[in-house]
Amino acid sequence: MLSRTKVLSLYKSMIKESNKFSSYNFREYAKKRIKHEFEANKQLNDQAKQAELIQKANANLNMIKRQVLVSQLYPTEKLIIE
């Protein structure tokens, strides 16, 4: 069984990484999407499925890291809501 703290720390690193997006739209979308996915699978007990989702989350975390870098290379103007 996957430890609770491991999942929570994965969630935390994903949220923290998404906070680095310089563009408001990317940032808020990423956070909402991460939150939604984690909430949807909160009651999941199937271990194989859990492992698969954790792998997917790790892959996505790396993708977010890359995209954050790219978004920092090409800064956009701040939106009026910021």
């Binding site: 609770r4 929570l8 969630y11 935390k12 949220i15 923290k16 906070n19 939150k35 984690f38 909430e39 909160k42």
Partner: peptide, 10 residues
């Protein structure tokens, strides 16, 4: 829930 708690911690 624990996810919200993590967000508060962040």
């Amino acid at each position: 829930d624990s996810l919200d708690q993590v967000e508060i911690i962040v």
